[in-house]
Design a protein around this nucleic acid. Structure first.
Length: 492
DNA sequence: ATAGGGTTAG
């Protein structure tokens, strides 16, 4: 609409002024078309408004909203003669939304060096980057910074803090903040329910959801995803059915593919593979690949290997360029000890020029994020780290650990497989943490994929042998390892 | 007169 008026304005020969452009650029941002944005940018330059701070700020925002065009935004940002908190927030938010969280945090640090004061919106943007990184220490520092600088704790800022604490591994702190809030929206409730769900505290999540309804806050579709995934991560099958059925009946919310996905996941994880398949058959909408993958994972876990193989093959046919489909099939062959078939899957991937997404683990130490990938030797300390990994291996074996070699992708002999397992990124990160932190300090790591069976088992032993609490955030949820046990109770 | 922000299945 705004753009329509702008075009009409130009047609009639009425000259826009510098106040016009923020509106126009904002409309472009909403559409996200790069060419449109560029042509408006051209007009801005022609008319000489490019040095106006407001125009620049909206221009940065506009480029950030065009898919994958943060670099254009960065150019405008670099070229701005003046900047204020809005300029920096727009750029930091742009990086955060495009998954370039480390750069977002870096820019926030730069902002302080330059001496521009962040406001509550800047803090929301940098907090969401921090959440993505899983950097709890940074998050805590940001919270204290907000207090120190007397930045207004707006509702959105509180929500961002809750989400940060929950996703950085401290749900109890998230819960405390939530309880202290005077005003809460559905977003506040959902953030803390999701947080509890991720930590496997399903019963608490469910009771909070009930409390929300009692308080008269109507759940929306996102809140239902939260409560259903809480049921799924904690094996609350009956409760899951109850909430799913209540969606339409009591709240008039038509379940979407995500909700069906949660239900399939709930049944699959609970080991009810047949029921999950039955549920898929009766769904009124087409199941997607996510749903099939969660069934295959269940087949793998429950030993329904033939069924898993059949579905995997179908999935590869319909989505041949998705590497995780091959990984699932190859894991099934590994469990069947069909190494030749497993190698074939690997060859299929190679032929299509695909690679397994490398597993990586991040860890925060002394205000710095360190990233490890399997077999990584780029770190200064790598010799010590590998020695520590070997020592860890010896110590936990003595405590009863038996390596789970079936998930190693390569067809190599048992000893080499064990070796490959020892070089998994999380083991490197844990060794690095054991070397560089004081005894008894909890270790927090963030994985980009799901934690593998062997690392899960090894980490349990490490937590006992080295007397450390180890908190692992993987792609789906948290694992709190303590004294040889994991909070997921091996259910994940 | 104009600009930047929070929750989403595996």
């Amino acid at each position: 609409m705004a753009l329509h008026f702008y075009k009409t304005m130009l047609c009639y020969g009425v000259l826009p002024n510098k106040f016009t452009y923020p509106f126009v650029l904002k409309a472009c941002a909403g559409i996200g078309g790069l060419n449109l944005g560029k042509s408006v940018h051209g007009f801005v330059v022609k008319l000489g408004f490019e040095d106006d701070l407001h125009v620049q700020n909206t221009m940065i925002h506009m480029y950030c909203c065009c898919e994958g065009e943060v670099e254009f935004a960065r150019k405008v940002f670099e070229g701005s003669p003046k900047s204020d908190s809005v300029t920096w927030s727009a750029m930091i938010g742009g990086y955060a939304r495009s998954g370039r969280s480390a750069e977002a945090v870096g820019l926030f640090r730069e902002m302080q060096v330059v001496g521009v004061c962040p406001d509550e919106i800047t803090m929301v943007s940098v907090l969401s980057a921090c959440t993505d990184l899983g950097a709890l220490e940074l998050g805590k520092w940001l919270e204290s910074y907000v207090d120190r600088m007397k930045i207004t704790k707006s509702l959105e800022l509180c929500n961002a803090l809750i989400d940060m604490f929950a996703k950085c591994g401290d749900v109890d702190k998230a819960m405390k903040l939530f309880r202290r809030m005077s005003m809460r929206t559905i977003v506040s409730w959902t953030s803390v329910i999701d947080g509890l769900a991720m930590h496997g505290r399903g019963l608490e999540a469910v009771s909070l959801f009930d409390e929300m309804i009692e308080e008269g806050v109507a759940p929306d579709d996102v809140a239902f995803i939260g409560v259903l995934s809480a049921c799924s991560h904690s094996g609350l099958v009956d409760k899951g059915h109850y909430y799913f059925n209540s969606m339409e009946k009591n709240f008039g919310i038509v379940p979407k593919i995500e909700h069906y996905g949660c239900m399939v996941d709930l049944l699959s994880r609970a080991g009810l593979v047949k029921e999950a398949l039955e549920f898929v058959r009766n769904m009124p909408i087409e199941p997607n690949q996510i749903i099939w993958r969660s069934i295959i994972t269940a087949c793998h876990a429950r030993g329904e290997l033939k069924l898993g193989e059949t579905i995997s093959k179908e999935l590869i046919k319909s989505e041949p360029m998705h590497e995780s489909n091959y990984v699932l099939l190859s894991n099934i062959y590994a469990k069947l000890l069909r190494w030749e078939k497993k190698t074939k899957v690997r060859e299929m991937m190679d032929m299509k020029g695909m690679k397994k997404i490398p597993g990586s683990t991040m860890i925060e130490l002394n205000n710095e994020m360190y990233e490890f990938v399997a077999g990584d030797k780029s770190h200064d300390q790598y010799k010590e780290i590998y020695e520590m990994v070997d020592e860890m291996g010896r110590e936990i074996k003595r405590a009863g650990y038996v390596p789970t070699t079936s998930q190693v992708l390569l067809d190599i002999d048992e000893e080499d497989k064990e070796d490959a397992l020892h070089r998994h990124s999380e083991k490197l990160a844990i060794a690095f943490a054991l070397l560089n932190t004081n005894p008894g300090t909890p270790i927090r790591i963030v994985k980009n994929l799901r934690v593998c069976e062997d690392c899960h088992s090894a980490t349990k032993f490490i937590s006992k042998v080295y007397n450390r609490e180890i908190v692992v955030r993987d792609r789906n949820r948290f694992h709190h390892f303590k004294n040889g046990l994991c909070s997921c109770r091996d259910f994940w």
